[in-house]
């Protein structure tokens, strides 16, 4: 018997520490599982469902299911990747995402995953929601049209910045992020460019003002490397 525990991910053994989720263990071992609402510094959220895997034949979210010895996990299969493409398409049509004109292009996890999973079209009819921008803050712009409801800003502001600037309100497709001020405007909060919440958005919903094309499109993070390659390399460097 070995002195560490493992589970099988797509047939390969992955070591884990007790208490780790399957996603945490897989990422640490350099095996990428697609994800959007996950962030290593925050508790599992489990809402985007990109990390849906099969554990011993049952579907689950890799970010919430704890790793256990002997589990047989499948992730990189045509079925699961096909479902992931559908989830990405859902997110693309639910909001309004115009990659070519978005300052986040090349640094956006949604766009990067769409490339990585070879999503070629949005497929479904666009919802074209009407979500006004909030440009009230001197340093930060919020374009709610690009929001994917991952609540990372909500969590970062609450748990790290100690400010509680955002909340998720509404129900169903009417779900939306609200700003905690009587006017509902960001300018009327104590939000600052230095906040963790100002830099945690995986897509282009929260952007610093007066920064445009400092790094040209084509040379940005995911322009250079696929999001999966990058995650796997990062794990190797840390090991």
């Amino acid at each position: 018997m070995s002195d560490y525990e493992t589970f099988l991910l797509d047939g390969r053994p992955v070591r884990f520490e007790r208490g780790q989720t399957i996603l945490e263990a897989a990422l640490a071992a350099g095996h990428y599982i697609p994800n959007l609402c996950h962030h290593p510094e925050f508790k599992p959220h489990g809402s985007c469902k990109l990390c849906t895997i099969k554990v011993n034949g049952r579907y689950g979210s890799a970010c919430t299911v704890k790793a256990m010895p002997g589990q047989e996990v499948s992730s990189d299969t045509p079925e699961l990747n096909g479902n992931r493409r559908v989830l990405l398409q859902m997110l693309f049509v639910e909001g309004s995402h115009f990659c070519p004109g978005c300052e986040k292009s090349g640094n956006c996890a949604l766009q990067a995953l769409a490339y990585d999973l070879e999503m070629l079209t949005p497929h479904y009819a666009h919802f074209y929601p009407s979500r006004p921008l909030d440009a009230s803050h001197p340093d930060v712009l919020i374009d709610f049209n690009r929001c994917i409801m991952c609540e990372l800003c909500v969590r970062a502001s609450r748990e790290v910045d100690g400010k509680n600037v955002f909340a998720l309100a509404g129900r169903g497709v009417a779900s939306h992020v609200v700003v905690n001020s009587p006017s509902g405007k960001l300018a009327d909060t104590d939000f600052a460019l230095t906040d963790k919440a100002a830099h945690i958005c995986p897509v282009g919903a929260i952007l610093p003002k007066r920064v445009g094309f400092a790094v040209p499109i084509g040379s940005r993070t995911y322009d250079v490397d696929a999001i999966s390659t990058l995650a796997e390399r990062r794990a190797t460097e840390e090991a």
């Binding site: 809402s47 469902k49 919802f127 994917i148 129900r171 779900s175």
Partner: peptide, 14 residues
Amino acid sequence: SCGFCTPCRVGTAI
């Protein structure tokens, strides 16, 4: 749909 997860929030609407 409560709107929490992608497949239900968007899938039921589509």
